[in-house]
Design a protein around this nucleic acid. Structure first.
Lengths: 169, 169
DNA sequence: GGCGATTTAGTTGTGCACAACTTAATTGTG
DNA sequence: CACAATTAAGTTGTGCACAACTAAATCGCC
């Protein structure tokens, strides 16, 4: 059976407007709450994400940070420079591989973690959701991201055969 | 009872990393899929959202567009100028209120709608989700956005007393 | 060893999001 | 009517996201 045609394109246009827009809106609402919560720390939300990664892993090459956060050097390089200018991270060329640059928290950056400990609870309170719900939603979003990535890379068939592995729902 | 302390701040930091990051990642994955789907039309995703609104409502003041999309003039003014430069919308001062500027699709902008009809289906296919699931997720995200907005405006008590109404959950 | 391909950061340019501000028109109140 | 307050767009500046590109180091293969 090829796609049950219960929905017309016209209606789809409106639905579409709502689903993806909801995601967009939620992200921006989150950013707004984070902006407020992080103002005292002098961090933006993406900078906070980078610091979370560095607090957890210690010293990391830019490449690895990018893998954790799905960001490339075009985004991370200037961001890390700003974090360095703020005194929160140190950057240096790796000795064993001169292509690589590693970043790690400075003492000030490490101290910052203490002040950041209260942030997640504030955010959690702002969502009004219980842990269960948060987990549930997170799982859904991760599935969604995986599906979208698969579809996107299928649209750009650069290497691997796609062998409809998107079915894993 | 004041917040059951089953979770330590430390653990919360990690959870937090995951929930909000998931949202962030999903949004960007969506944007990426849209970028591909909209490339032929010469639209970015936010431009597409604006066109959706204009296709649905016809002529609208910038203010109204912003209300539909939660965007302010700082974002919309340059965006609408680009859409105007692309020949998809017309802008003009309102006659009855000279403060207001209205935007509406040009003939080319209206034609564009036909070419955009296939987009939502492509996106829906990329998500790999059924309509039910989409609706469910959308509802969750809308709840989340509402909660976040409420918490945010409570943090900036500009008018209404806050009277701990955030407890609803 | 030499040399092309790959990998890693970084740069440049475009566009979005938003805070803070400016300008101009309208509204409300005395 | 006059004038302060409000409202609507637009401008400016900062930062993020990403495509496309450059520069330098490393790897692989002959």
């Amino acid at each position: 059976m090829d796609t049950p045609r219960t929905v017309r394109d016209e209606d789809f246009l409106r639905l579409d407007h709502q689903i993806c827009f909801s995601l967009h809106a939620a992200t921006r609402a989150f950013n707004s709450v984070y902006r407020t919560a992080l103002k005292d720390l002098g961090l933006t939300y993406p900078q906070y994400l980078v610091m979370l990664v560095l607090w957890e892993h210690g010293e990391l090459p830019v490449k690895r940070i990018g893998e954790h956060l799905r960001l490339d050097s075009g985004t991370l390089s200037p961001l890390l420079k700003r974090l360095e200018a703020a005194g929160y991270v140190e950057r240096r060329r790796s000795a064993e591989d001169e292509r690589s640059v590693t970043a790690r928290p400075t003492p000030a950056g490490t101290e910052l973690r203490e002040r950041a400990l209260g942030v997640p609870r504030r955010i959690a309170a702002a969502t009004g959701m219980r842990l269960e719900e948060v987990r549930e939603l997170r799982a859904r979003l991760n599935e969604l991201t995986t599906a979208l990535d698969a579809a996107e890379s299928a649209a750009y068939p650069d290497g691997c055969a796609t062998e409809d592995d998107t079915a894993g729902g």
